[in-house]
Design a protein around this nucleic acid. Structure first.
Lengths: 197, 197
DNA sequence: GTCTATATTACGATAGAC
DNA sequence: GTCTATCGTAATATAGAC
């Protein structure tokens, strides 16, 4: 009971982020008004400005938070000492699992880059690049160990991330395939694509 | 000289489509105003309504035209009688080549679905599905012929199209790699992913 | 912390002159 | 075919009461 009666700030702050994430993903940042967000959480539009200095900062914060969580989650479970093929498998499972559980955040992180102002865009591109480098490092180590057959690790990185991230555009929990089945299929395609026998 | 002096309608109509395509791709449909489009082609905002009944129709028309051109272009060069692995190669080269030459249209076709009104969305999803079926038919024929090793052709279709379309997000003519080099690399990754030896 | 009220600006679309 | 002018609406953001 850290908060006073009638004071709802922390809950409203959480609701705001959740509502904005959902609305931005569904309709796009530019198409969503502050009034819509306010209505979704049951406050007046003016009250939103207690929690964010402006609409742009809200978008930038949602995107940066998502990328930070992504990078932290990987750091927490990565095993840098494992063999390249095992690290690749771990990455594929991690990427699909993490992204499938956050379809709205992923959608925003990929679709709303163009609505970020320059400073915010620069930060996000740095974070994306750091995540791409995670996979590229794995591919490089596999090539160095003679386990992977990849002419250009940068190109393969972009290709594989695009393939894996695409899952979020059509995956729905409870659909035709379980996440485990999808992971298996994608893993075998990724293995084939990098030339693992 | 089919047109009268001082009459510029056909050129303006072309300019309108080109400017709208560029602006929608760069900033997003919802973020672009009719005034911006008008300014880009040097007319007043009101004049745009001589060429489109409204902003939504303009978007829907651009997207449907792109998909129609994509499907027609494939029909014009597809060789349905060839062996599965040859048809797959042809599709990969076609897809990369066609999409790399139209980055703005591709961007819009994938990003602005959520801004289409229901009737327009239904048409576009039908067209997308038809294009996805092109690849899935190839994969199915390869599986039937014992040439491809694919547990789920629908899943593989979505994965491969996501991978191939991703090229447009970073490919720039004159960059580090030529389109031919990219085609070769992607082709070898696709071959591996479908289990072609 | 949330409210009402409002300043300011911009939007999509239309009317009618030329 | 394009213009100017404008209607009606809605946007972001702020001010100040409670």
């Amino acid at each position: 009971m850290a908060r006073k009666t009638g004071s709802n700030g922390e809950k409203t702050a959480r609701d705001l982020r959740r509502a904005a994430t959902s609305l931005f993903a569904r309709h796009g940042y530019a198409a969503v008004s502050m009034r819509q967000i306010a209505q979704a959480i049951g406050v007046q539009a003016g009250a939103l400005y207690l929690y964010t200095p402006d609409k742009q900062s809200l978008l930038a914060d949602l995107m940066a938070t998502h990328m930070t969580e992504l990078l932290d989650a990987w750091q927490a479970e990565a095993d840098a000492g494992a063999a390249p093929e095992d690290r690749l498998e771990q990455f594929v499972r991690f990427h699909i699992g993490f992204h499938a559980g956050r379809p709205d955040e992923v959608f925003i992180a990929y679709m709303e880059l163009r609505n970020l102002e320059p400073d915010n865009l620069a930060l996000l591109q740095k974070q994306r690049r750091a995540y791409e480098d995670v996979l590229e490092d794995i591919l490089k180590s596999g090539v160095a160990a003679g386990r992977f057959d990849i002419p250009d690790t940068r190109l393969a990185t972009m290709a594989l991330i695009a393939m894996l991230t695409g899952v979020t555009t059509w995956f729905r929990s409870g659909g035709r395939l379980t996440l485990e089945e999808i992971e298996e299929t994608y893993l075998s395609m990724v293995r084939g694509a990098v030339g693992l026998t």
